[in-house]
Design a protein around this nucleic acid. Structure first.
Length: 259
DNA sequence: ATGCCGAAGTTACTTCGA
């Protein structure tokens, strides 16, 4: 089985590229983030024609998550237990489903914006809720992975130049401790291989020639329970998908499982 | 060449992203 996670930065703007990637990537299950569209506007028929069932949760302009599956899609759950609100709303940032004998979760962790912004404690609170919520799936016999855009570089090696990011979000000890608490629930980082260069970055900003200069970050992660981890045969970042006109600023993380 | 930001709501500018 092949599973993947990909922040597509607008489903409407990216639909043709997403469909083209599905046609060549041979993925059975795909977790998507940043749909930037409402659930009712998700092109379910286009995915069905491509062979995929869809579970989606979106509210419009920002956020939005989905799971595509061609191996079944059952027991769908929106959000996580104890998910904090932002501006009085529960944002569409998590969706969990069982697909072909694997429990998968698509996650779009809040960005944080700035360490002094209200979005930053929201990010930490979201991760705290996730750590508690993930414990039962982490301990289960069913393979489980919480995959998506965590908006955190786990270590200094996961960013092109940590000194350029002093004092910013994504690299702070508070965020890394919150991520460690999620892992402590019983989940391990499925570390991918890079298709080029030495580090498997998953995001490159559109600005400043960041992609050609490989100024990237590894912020899209798959945190997996022991049953999932034991089945992993390969993992890589499909950086080729970051190339060309109309690319998302994130590349897909692809994981192969012997299941 | 992988190439100098892009998406979306609203309609010329603003917010957001990492």
């Amino acid at each position: 089985m092949r599973v993947a996670t990909w922040n597509i930065n607008s489903l409407k703007a990216r639909l043709e590229r997403v469909l083209a990637w599905l046609a060549s990537a041979d993925a059975d299950v795909v977790c998507l983030q940043e749909l930037k569209c409402a659930t009712a506007d998700v092109p379910v028929e286009a995915f069905k024609t491509a062979g995929y069932d869809v579970a989606a949760w979106g509210t419009g302009r920002w956020n939005g998550v989905a799971i595509l599956s061609r191996v079944g899609l059952a027991d769908v759950r929106e959000g996580i237990a104890g998910q904090p609100d932002f501006d009085g709303q529960a944002e569409p940032r998590a969706l969990t489903a069982t697909c072909g004998g694997v429990r998968v979760q698509t996650l779009y962790i809040p960005n944080g914006r700035d360490t002094a912004d209200a979005h930053f404690p929201y990010k930490l609170a979201f991760l705290q809720a996730l750590a508690a919520d993930a414990a039962s799936d982490a301990a289960a016999d069913l393979p489980f992975a919480a995959m998506g855009d965590y908006n955190i570089c786990p270590t200094d090696d996961d960013i092109w130049d940590v000194d350029e990011w002093t004092g910013t979000t994504h690299i702070t000890p508070a965020e890394r401790e919150a991520l460690d608490a999620v892992k402590a629930a019983g989940l391990a980082d499925v570390f991918p291989r890079a298709l080029k260069y030495d580090r498997p970055f998953t995001f490159w900003d559109y600005r400043n020639l960041d992609f050609p200069k490989n100024r990237g970050m590894r912020i899209d992660l798959a945190l997996a329970n022991p049953a999932f981890t034991a089945a992993v045969t390969d993992a890589f970042v499909d950086r080729n998908e970051r190339k060309g006109k109309g690319a998302s600023d994130h590349a897909p993380l692809v994981i192969d499982l012997d299941l």
